[in-house]
Amino acid sequence: MVILLATDEAKNIIRPEGEIRLETIDLDMFYDDFQAVKQISIAIPSRRITALIGPSGCGKSSFLRCLNRMNDVIEGTRVQGKVLLDGEDIYSPDTDVVQLRRRVGMVFQTPNPFPMSIYDNIAYGPRLHGVRDRTQLDEIVEKSLRSAAIWDEVKDKLHQSATDLSGGQQQRLCIARVLAVEPEIVLMDEPCSALDPTATFRIEELMTELMENYTIIIVTHNMYQASRVSQYTGFFLMGELIEYDHTVRIFENPQDQRTDDYVRGRFG
């Protein structure tokens, strides 16, 4: 069942069915005077993959980084509106940002393993949060690497440098590192843009597996990727959310002319 938002029917933004624990209400984000994200209201379905697509500079990555407050790190950024996680605004003054980022993990565009061993990379998060026991760490490391479908490739070299892995392996390692802190939501910012097609395929497979236990939001330049992996897709243009619907609808029967032009490759 698809329910249109009563307030703004013309914008073709649906509210997905099923459980929703993360949503934004009228979210604006500024870099100094430049507004990168404009009045975004979107509800993210739990345990589904939501893709955010749009041309470069459309604000989709900036929007994604609002969801775990990674934009706080960049000087001159400012946010208005609300991001509700289980009904609580993550931008309210009493939010524990450290706790928030444990719940909302992030995988970045370029694989960024720490220059440490594979083991230490995975154990980094749990150690931060106080896990010291060696057997417990061993378990977390194995479980996370298995979940990220990289265990078999690295189990014999856990104490070798993570930076010696291939790009695709590094990215799966980074996903495992995120899983090790047991987040509820995983944000992926163009996770395959630095990878070859084979490595990309492995990551896409992995995302589908992870969907059982995690809510995933992926920003991607690659429309085919969005159509392959996601159930819901949002189309961004110039900082606005133009259309948000079931992925099939966005790609086969978009309501907005601009969405239609974009997914048919007429621009972007």
């Binding site: 790190v73 444990r102 960024n112 720490f114 931060l128 590192r177 802190v181």
Partner: peptide, 20 residues
């Protein structure tokens, strides 16, 4: 990228400075 990776895992600024 390394700082962001650490912060995104829930590290504080000081933990990020000290460990990464």
């Amino acid at each position: 990228g390394l700082r962001e990776a650490s912060l995104a895992l829930g590290a504080t600024k000081w933990q990020t400075v000290r460990r990464v």
